[in-house]
């Protein structure tokens, strides 16, 4: 049997951490794009779509991410669509984060005074012009801090992808533990690596929040 030095453990965890970061990035970008589309459609006030948005958000916020992963991974296979762990993880995390990001951004837009919309309307601006020149520049300021804050949730959410066999940080930790029987050392390092990824994001979110409060 092969012997694992501490460096071997760390090296393997670091290699697996790449996948955690990559999965987080994909989920954040994918979720961001879907969330953005939802936000635009919602604020355009197509009344008939509103029920859809509400149900969408409730489902993805109200069902544990783990169940969503199971449903995508096993459920789609049952329907005859073959998905690998990577696709299933990205798909679930994208949908999951799109629901949260949409809620964050929608609330930022709705937090702006109604008078901003009315002023634009009386000046004859179109919906797109109003969004681009008046609403988004103001909403973005409010949205940055909670958005960065939510990215921490995405990073931690990727750990669940280990359960459907995707080898990221947590899964690598489990495998190394099975080989070394040193759970405290291995999972201690896993936790430390998550912290190293998430902590700067938290600090950034807090910094951005304070910065925006100061300029208001």
């Amino acid at each position: 049997m092969m012997q694992f030095t501490d460096w071997d453990i760390l090296r393997n965890l670091l290699l697996a951490a790449r996948w955690t970061i990559l999965l987080s990035l994909f989920a954040f970008i994918g979720g961001g794009l879907v969330g953005l589309i939802l936000t635009f459609l919602r604020s355009a006030k197509y009344a008939s779509l509103n029920v859809f948005f509400k149900v969408y958000v409730e489902i993805f916020q109200g069902v544990p991410l783990l169940m969503q992963l199971f449903l995508t991974f096993f459920g789609l296979s049952l329907l005859g669509i073959d998905v690998d762990a990577w696709t299933a993880a990205i798909l679930s995390l994208t949908l999951f984060s799109s629901a949260y990001l949409h809620e964050i951004w929608r609330s930022c837009i709705e937090a702006l005074p109604k008078g901003q919309w009315e002023a634009c309307r009386t000046l004859g601006l179109t919906y797109a012009q109003t969004m681009r020149h008046v609403i988004i520049p103001q909403a973005i300021k409010m949205a940055i801090a909670p958005t960065v804050g939510f990215s921490v949730q995405i990073v931690k959410g990727t750990a669940l992808a280990s359960i459907i066999g995707f080898v990221e940080l947590t899964k690598a930790g489990t495998m190394l533990n099975n080989a070394t029987f040193e759970p405290f050392k291995v999972f201690g390092l896993v936790a430390l690596l998550y912290f190293i990824i998430c902590f700067p994001l938290s600090v950034l979110a807090r910094y951005l929040e304070n910065k925006n409060h100061a300029t208001r």
């Binding site: 008078g115 901003q116 009315e118 009386t122 012009q129 020149h133 008046v134 520049p137 103001q138």
Partner: peptide
């Protein structure tokens, strides 16, 4: 043809006075 001024001003806080005035003629 119809302009409106509001009780709560409703100026665009992220734009200067001049930019507030310029926005509509430029876009519309």
């Amino acid at each position: 043809s119809v302009g409106m001024v509001f009780q709560s001003f409703n100026l665009f806080p992220h734009k200067t006075a001049a930019e507030n005035v310029m926005l509509a003629p430029q876009l519309v």
